[in-house]
Amino acid sequence: MFKFLFKFLATIILSLLLVVVVVSCFQHFQSRRYSFPEPKPFSGKYLYNPYKDVDTIWQKCNFHAHANAWGGTTDGNAQTGKDLLEKYCSMNYDVACISDYHSINPEQNTTDSTFVPVYEHGHNLFKAHRLALGSTNVSYYDVSLLHTLHDRQYVIQRLRNTSPYIAVAHPKFGGGHTLDDFKWLTGYELIEVLNHYRLSDKYWDIALSAGKPVWIIADDDCHNISKPEETGVKWTMVGDNTSTGKNILDNLVKGNAYGVDGTNAENDNYLESVTTDSMAVVVKLKKKAKEIRLVGQNGLLRASILNSDHIKYIFAPEDTYVRRNKKQKN
């Protein structure tokens, strides 16, 4: 009897292993290999300022949060979609999305003008996830095991068939992406620099230093609304006067946005303006900040000012980009 049980268990384990290998082979067989273009840092005699014609109303948005889905088997089962939306409404968010794994949550009011369909894509080891924004359909394809840069690029290519806009979610979290990936990956618009799990600004600087114009998205990635450390702590301010989901997304991917980290959905400082004149950049905040830091190529510090509400910087010949980075709390 014992011998039979042992054989039976061994067969079950062996069969499960075979299923995993067969499924993985099926996924890998569909994937592709690529030749990637050499990274080319930003160049030119002009400055591109995404805030040049930015709308005057700033919409407070969270595009990444989880509710009960897939029969409660995924992380986020502590709350219903209704609970989640009510919580974000109480924190005065203009746009609050539910981004369940491979599912556009049906509890959302799709007729609401600010509705943005979004889901989190990725069922693989090490959490190489993406946010599919503005999607009409869900893509279930992924390379779950032993995925390489080429596989991650192919997944982005496949996602483009059903999603107009793609954000690479929490690149630093889980080890699903390497820093080097961002030198090469193309075909996505946004990178989730701020997420309650991780700060991924180094990954962003690698992409920008390689001349990839990708924009910030900042989200809670909330899985439990009763936890203050993951609710109302990271959000995106999008400049948009229309308050419609489509236009908010369009402005987000034009770079008319910035990321905020705060507490209880509040922050004591916001952006006033970013202006450029020839090769000079002026960043103005609503209030004085302890420090305003500008970083550039390879994430290196280019300028810094203490106790001021603005900073002026003139591009040096070797500068390719500058962005405001935060070191200390405002």
Binding site: S43, Y46, L47, P213, R324, K326
Partner: peptide, 15 residues
């Protein structure tokens, strides 16, 4: 807060 980058370009095509 974290702002989007200001970067060099050719002055014609939107990057």
């Amino acid at each position: 807060m974290y702002l989007n980058p200001i970067f060099r370009y050719d002055g014609k095509t939107t990057p």
